[in-house]
Design a protein around this nucleic acid. Structure first.
Length: 155
DNA sequence: GCCAACGTTGGC
DNA sequence: GCCAACGTTGGC
């Protein structure tokens, strides 16, 4: 299985790349995704070793702020079973989990964020899912070419 | 804070 | 199965 590339959104007020940096082993589970299309990617398509663009959304300067690596592929999101969690969902149960998550480990925090505005300026990124009108998938596929361009922009 | 775009829900 | 109403996302 060849390596794949993804982009994951997070609101930095909820969970930022600094939070990931401060985790033990700089690893976290990516819980709380409650969209079926993104769920299917988490459950079926994302593999250990895949690379991730870490994106800050709904903030002053939306941007790719670093990269991560998938350290554990899809497994049931246990937060959905926890009544005290804000991600609780009565329709998901351990016998038949509705929601999935993966684990990600920080690879690199960019010295300078690659802003949404700068991504939009690149003709070569025109087809990037993130840049499509109305695109709001919080877990989305990225082409290798696109991933490499973003990495280059971070230097 | 506004609002366009999208996803989900539920009545029929 | 349609679709109006509602809720959420997320850039600006």
């Amino acid at each position: 299985m060849t390596m794949k590339y993804w982009l994951m959104k997070t609101e930095p007020t909820t969970y930022s790349i600094e939070d990931l940096e401060n985790e033990s082993n700089q690893t976290t589970c990516w819980e709380g995704v409650r969209n079926y299309q993104a769920r299917n990617l988490l459950r079926d398509d994302i593999q250990e070793g895949d690379r991730v663009l870490f994106y800050h959304s709904a903030c002053k300067e939306p941007a790719v702020v670093g990269t991560a690596v998938v350290s554990r592929p899809g497994y049931p999101d246990s937060h959905a079973f926890d009544k005290r969690s804000k991600y609780y969902d009565a329709k998901s149960d351990p016998e038949n989990p509705r929601w999935y998550m993966v684990d990600v480990k920080l690879e690199q925090k960019f010295d300078a964020p690659v802003t949404l505005a700068s991504l939009r300026e690149k003709a070569s990124l025109k087809e990037m899912v993130l840049l499509q009108k109305g695109s709001r998938l919080s877990v989305q596929p990225v082409k290798k070419k696109e991933f490499d361009i973003v990495l280059k922009m971070a230097k």
